[in-house]
Amino acid sequence: MKPKFFIITTVSDSLPFFKGQLNVLKKDFTVSLVSSPGVHLEEMGQEYDVSKFPIKMEREISLLKDLKSFFKLLVLFLKEKPKLVHANTPKASLLAIMAAWFSRVPARVYYVHGLRYQSILGKKKILLMLMERMTCWFATEVIAVSNGIKETLISDNITSKNIIIIGNGSINGIDTSYFNPDKVIEIKDDKLKPSDFVFGFVGRLVKDKGLEELILAFQKLSKTSKNIKLLIVGAFEENMTLSKEIIDTLYKNPNILYVGPQKDVRPFFKAMDVFVLPSYREGFGIVLIEAGAMKIPSITTDIAGCNEVIIDNKTGFLIKRKDVKDLFEKMKYVVENKQQIKMMKENARDRVHDRYSQDTVWKNAKETYLKIIKNHV
């Protein structure tokens, strides 16, 4: 009988991290999905023919609701008796790993995708760091999505346990046959002309992604450089963190094309000349490897999770965190050195294909989980 393998995330929007990989895991495990009720929980349960358990979990700290979620997870684990609990995202990880410990689940994996406390100050930061330490303590294994995350866990004294990295990092790798510019037709829009140099952004429209710095740098560049555009793809979050002035600029600047969230981002990537991600914190820059696979060099922050993906001056450019001036200068440089950008395109795709192809990531992941099961069951 295959050992039961439970994958838990706070919200169902995080479950697509495991698209495709579930078919590989199913060969050796009986896989189940747990998250707050949501579209992706239902869709992935049906698509991959795996059990799904909707348990409401709050992303923010809410003591009474968190206790309720904890007890529901505890009851679920006591009933289903999984051999391995694979916890992802901060809140689900704390609740699930603790519930797994109390219900004596032998293998308890905390997969660290990012460290939310890095962009928080004051007492909340202390509390979030404490939560991370607790999750790591209750886990049998801690897996980091990148070397940068591993180094931060160690330097911040979050855990003294041996931290695993699967392959070169990345939770799910990338399908380079899908993210292939030769198989995609770029978007057509009256705002984008063949002579335009297009900067692009894909992601959540929040302050932590460096969107304010990007728009400010682009506005400054627009005053001196002609035929440049900024293409923005993504959705606003409920807890609005961007200033009203930035949002107004996003909608009103004629050189900014905001297209909202898109199910297929590839045609929008293909319209870009350079991708820009001036993020404050990033567990692993999955969007950077998507851009690279589409032969798009990137300008991104020199932080953990980004500087492992991008090689400075070869597949893109690294900039200082929260530095509008540095971002502006790099954006100005790429507009003035278009030939160098063309040379970087092949480098970007080659690096992604060599390090992050899905077949390799999935194989390494399954081998890691089988070894964990062997060590604990």
Rank of each mutant, 00 (worst) to 15 (best):
S36F: 03
K332Q: 09
K124P: 01
A87M: 02
V145C: 00
E212V: 02
T301C: 11
V75K: 01
Q339V: 11
E367I: 08
S119W: 05
K223E: 14
L94R: 00
F29G: 07
L33W: 04
K363W: 10
S103D: 00
E186T: 10
T30Q: 15
K314T: 12
V39G: 06
S12F: 06
D248T: 02
G260L: 07
Y333M: 07
E186R: 10
E43Y: 12
D326F: 02
L130P: 02
F218H: 03
L78W: 02
N239R: 08
K188R: 04
I341T: 08
T30A: 15
C136R: 05
R321A: 13
T249K: 03
S14L: 09
K270T: 05
Y111T: 02
D189G: 00
K2G: 08
L250T: 00
A293P: 13
V276K: 00
E282N: 05
I97G: 00
L84N: 08
Y110H: 04
W101V: 00
S177H: 14
S170L: 11
N375G: 13
D264G: 08
N239Q: 10
E238H: 12
K123F: 05
K123V: 07
Y48L: 06
V105Y: 07
E346V: 10
T300I: 05
A139H: 02
H113S: 00
T360V: 13
D323A: 05
K183N: 15
L192T: 01
I296H: 12
Q339N: 14
I185G: 09
V50D: 08
S357K: 11
M129K: 15
N375F: 05
L130E: 12
A100Y: 03
H113I: 00
N253P: 02
D66S: 03
V324H: 08
E245R: 05
A99Q: 01
E282Y: 06
M129Y: 10
D323L: 06
K150S: 14
K191Y: 06
K65W: 07
N337H: 11
I286Y: 04
V276E: 01
R351L: 11
K220Y: 03
P261S: 15
V85R: 06
M131A: 11
V206E: 08
R59I: 00
K374V: 07
V142E: 05
E238C: 02
S177F: 12
L231A: 10
D28T: 08
R281S: 07
K56D: 02
V309L: 12
F70D: 00
P54Y: 06
C306S: 13
G38S: 03
T241F: 05
K188N: 10
V31H: 06
P16H: 13
D182F: 14
A144V: 11
K209C: 07
S36V: 05
G210M: 02
N347S: 15
K123Y: 06
T152L: 09
S12I: 05
H40Q: 15
S170P: 09
F77Y: 09
L153H: 03
N239E: 07
V198F: 10
F138D: 01
P82Q: 13
I165H: 04
M331G: 04
G234F: 03
G167M: 01
E212T: 11
G234R: 03
R321G: 09
G20M: 12
D323P: 05
S32E: 12
I126Y: 13
K19E: 14
M1E: 15
P3H: 08
T152E: 10
L67R: 12
